[in-house]
Design a protein around this nucleic acid. Structure first.
Lengths: 174, 174
DNA sequence: GTCTATATTGTGATAGAC
DNA sequence: GTCTATCACAATATAGAC
């Protein structure tokens, strides 16, 4: 990937957070880069390609961050922090069905792998990992969508996640 | 509210589910109603008004359903069922910050009240109710966005919600 | 790698006749 | 309550010069 492409994606992510997902587009991005819209097509096939490049970067970044998390409390803290660093990108990553053919190969897998590793991947099915993921996702999603009262601290609800999902008896991993 | 308005909203909800939130618009709705786009402006001020009328109906419907729910398992079952009856509407209701000035007065409150009632509203703050809501929201949101493997049954993850959030000692309500 | 010029399409919305 | 006609934009994208 060329340096210019990376540079464009850096600006694109900032623009995405500034204007929101529905106003994000070729025009807004070109303006922020101080170039004309057609110039972008020399670097990306189109808007979809730019969006999916952003999503891919988001998954890799999340995966790397989760790889450094320790335990359930660490997972909660890292997941929330990562989501809130770039909430609009997080929404792009999670709100719609993914067109995986346009993603960087392995990007989504890296995040999912890190997630499953935190909860023990040896089981055939992953209901507990999925539940923890959904719990965390719900908390950030509602926070980003501003569904908790203006002054309310989401901290206690995250504490509920940690305490309620903590293993109560040492349960065999496999 | 006129009968025609209700009729239009019924069709609008069906169209919304058929074409998705981003393709839903005045044109699509008019086509489904077999009238011309300008005719819609005799019934609603514009697209925003239609969307917010749909959201208001969704909140009332969810509130009514939750009022009939019993216990944590009932909450889980009713919440999921309601969300999946109209997933696109559910996304509209939850994904973006709400412009409450355009909602039917009391609509959102009815759903929130029913939710809090299920978890005991007497406490000053509501971290447990919020946590349960977020958990359920995360599960449906990921299911709607197709983030669980194609054949995977979300049921076990819902069971994790019910069992993990169930009060373990009879905890005083206040 | 950037530009100008243009094509194409789509959108919500208004005025005013019937 | 519906129509025709029209507006006002805004969007992605392409061709081809520099």
């Amino acid at each position: 990937m060329s340096a210019r492409r990376e540079q464009i994606l850096d600006v694109a992510e900032r623009v995405l957070e500034d204007v929101g997902a529905d106003r994000f587009g070729i025009g807004e991005l070109a303006r922020a880069l101080d170039i004309k819209p057609p110039s972008l097509y020399k670097h990306f096939r189109g808007l979809d390609a730019i969006v999916h490049a952003l999503i891919s970067r988001g998954f890799v970044r999340l995966g790397v961050a989760l790889e450094g998390a320790d335990g359930l409390a660490g997972f909660a803290e890292v997941y929330r922090a990562q989501a809130l660093v770039a909430p609009q990108l997080y929404c792009l990553m999670t709100q719609h069905p993914l067109d995986r053919s346009q993603l960087e190969p392995g990007a989504e897998e890296r995040a999912m792998r890190a997630l499953l590793d935190l909860f023990g991947e040896s089981v055939q099915d992953h209901p507990r990992a999925r539940a923890a993921w959904a719990f965390a996702h719900g908390l950030v999603a509602l926070e980003i969508a501003q569904r908790f009262p203006p002054g309310a601290d989401p901290g206690p609800s995250w504490a509920v996640l940690v305490s309620s999902l903590a293993p109560r008896h040492a349960s065999p991993a496999g």
